[in-house]
Nucleic acid binder design. Structure first.
Lengths: 139, 139
DNA sequence: ATAACCCTTAAAGTATACTTTAAGTCAAGG
DNA sequence: CCTTGACTTAAAGTATACTTTAAGGGTTAT
């Protein structure tokens, strides 16, 4: 099955112009055309899914393009691509850890406002109660 | 203790001009000055830490400013601020889940390239082996 | 006192990632 | 036949978050 750009866009939850932009930037190798019109098949959706994965995990478009260029060169670049994926994996792990760290700060703020709303004011909050009540350290 | 902008910047791992930009945008209430020069005390560092937390968890500067404005209005805005923090907590949780989802895709790619390097080519990879070898589903 | 060095501002510049616009092509339906 | 609607391109525009530049001020060391 092959899809037009607007169908592909809908399936990937992005706009058609975004896909055109990705294509123009060389992030989508091998998009076939019928009468000049892009037709997206399963291979293209594979690329789109990987593209979204890398994008959503914070990889800049330039770097994704590097990965695509490496892929086009075939087996000679397997190690380079492996290392790029490993680096991205590490990057995602670091991001998750960072978010979990900041979540503690938001948990404290959550407690803080619950307490303030209970008392009716934030001026009289006793921070020591946070550790006592939640067992968590104040960040 | 009070610090100059470059000391504060070093302590927060940002550039002095970034802090000036935040100040100009109204993200730092109550920064005192000596002879026109900003002096950062513990209260300011509290704001800077919260600012970094919200920024690093993806809140746009405009929204952070809204939060700061609400804070300046005092106890009358406690509920609004509570809801803003709750929304950000949810947002962070969603982000973590999304990253964990994409991590599975990267785990598959990791396996894929290990396998390809082992065989010497990516052409002969049998995807069925992924589930057999790792116990994880192919994403 | 004069150079070094840190601070100040406003305004312009940069980077990234789209998004919109303008002008045009092509196939299908009334 | 011609209008409708989806596609095409190149180029310009937008949003966000800084970063850099230019011009200047005040304290300290030589």
């Amino acid at each position: 099955m092959a899809y037009t750009i607007s169908e592909a866009a809908r399936l990937m939850s992005v706009s058609p112009s975004t896909i055109r932009y990705y294509d123009k930037e060389g992030l989508l190798p091998e998009v076939k055309r019928q009468n000049g019109i892009r037709m997206f098949d399963e291979v293209d959706f594979g690329w789109l899914r990987l593209l979204m994965c890398l994008k959503k995990t914070g990889m800049p478009i330039k770097r994704i393009k590097e990965y695509v260029e490496l892929s086009k060169k075939g087996d000679a670049t397997l190690l380079e691509r492996y290392e790029l994926i490993r680096a991205q994996r590490q990057f995602v792990q670091d991001q998750i850890e960072q978010l979990e760290y900041y979540m503690e700060e938001l948990d404290f703020k959550d407690w803080y406002y619950r307490k303030a709303l209970e008392i009716g004011s934030e001026k009289a909050i006793d921070y020591n109660e946070y550790e006592q009540e939640t067992g968590h350290k104040k960040p």
